[in-house]
Design a protein around this nucleic acid. Structure first.
Lengths: 199, 199
DNA sequence: CAATTACAGATTGTTGACAATTCATGGGAT
DNA sequence: ATCCCATGAATTGTCAACAATCTGTAATTG
């Protein structure tokens, strides 16, 4: 891999995964020194990561008291969150549909491949990561980077209460249907398959 | 004042204002040293602020190259952004309407007072700040802090292309209508006035 | 005995110094 | 003249030390 240039990015990605996967439990306090020793870096980068993840809402920060892992969103906001995410993603797909390049499609296929592999290994964490990547790739197809910035915190809220499919393969198939519809140029079917995947 | 506990918070608020008000122009690079001298602090807190504002999308950051002020969002995403913001705020108002306390209403009135004052002084920057505070207060009435986290980046995108009303007082009146409808317990009118204010 | 205060350890906030990277400039080879 | 590479100034990335703040504990006081 080695796609991250700075220590801060690496730690941020790692910590983010730890939180979303549930390895770190809500309310658990995180110490700067403990993490700096664990990652073998000084406290500076750790503080930057804390600032970012707190701004993102994955951590809650209180002055002079450190950070804690954020708790799951309240159940009654889920319908709104689902609706918002669905609107963003369908908007993007609708807007860019005629401009999707073979390269874009290849990116999606590449993610699908990793998804299938994760299913075979019965690795729910990896599946979730590829699930994120699939939709991230989709939203990233829109020329405006602002949509990703808006989409991220919404997606994050859904991931904080991610419920694994009983059958992992079903998740893979749902995404495959989206990509296939795009490949066939069937816009309506693609939008429908996308909406069906978000809930 | 003295509401901000740490240097980081103060600088973040100040810089945020500078960007949203347009005093800092899109694409302009910001140097850590320059800002640290301007605010009389070291580079550490400045870097934390950069990390936060970049995560928020107000600055764009490139490793080893520093940060730049983000440019305005593309015009064609505005309809979506407006729609998303409207849905969040009306959702909140609808959900909390029956639980709005006199204290909440007082907060809104307090903002309205500052708004009127800003209008009298013909101070568009102050008006914008109170405009933000009004809606922030509203969204903050919902018990889930997640809604604020989702709302913020969306609101930010609209503020980056904030167009001042020809008549400042009109903006004040729009918000006053919302508060008045809430005070009278007229839920439908409140929702309507709110929707009319967001565009 | 309850409440308060003093203290010590731990943790976060801030700083200045050092290392690594980028970028512009100018000298040299073809 | 053009291209390439060296070189050094400017800037960001990282670190370790110091200061300020919080937290729990135990002694003190009424």
């Amino acid at each position: 891999m080695e796609i991250y240039r700075t220590i801060t990015e690496q730690v941020a990605a790692h910590l983010r995964q730890d939180i979303l996967s549930g390895r770190l439990k809500a309310g658990q306090p995180l110490r700067e020194q403990a993490l700096s020793e664990r990652f073998g870096v000084s406290r500076g980068p750790i503080r930057e990561v804390f600032a970012m993840l707190a701004d993102q809402g994955l951590l809650v920060k209180e002055p002079n008291k450190g950070v804690q892992v954020a708790s799951r969103p309240m159940a009654d906001v889920r319908p709104l969150v689902v609706d918002l995410r669905k609107r963003i993603e369908t908007y993007v797909l609708d807007q860019v549909f005629d401009r999707i390049t073979p390269r874009d499609l290849q990116s999606l296929d590449s993610v699908l491949q990793d998804m299938e592999s994760a299913c075979r290994r019965e690795d729910p964490d990896a599946l979730m990561e590829q699930d994120i990547r699939f939709h991230q790739t989709l939203v990233g197809m829109h020329p405006s980077p602002d949509l990703l910035r808006i989409w991220e915190p919404i997606m994050t809220r859904m991931l904080l209460e991610y419920t694994r499919h009983g059958d992992l393969m079903e998740s893979y198939l749902e995404h495959k249907r989206i990509a296939d519809a795009i490949r066939e140029g069937n816009q309506e079917a693609a939008l429908e398959a996308l909406a069906a995947n978000i809930l």
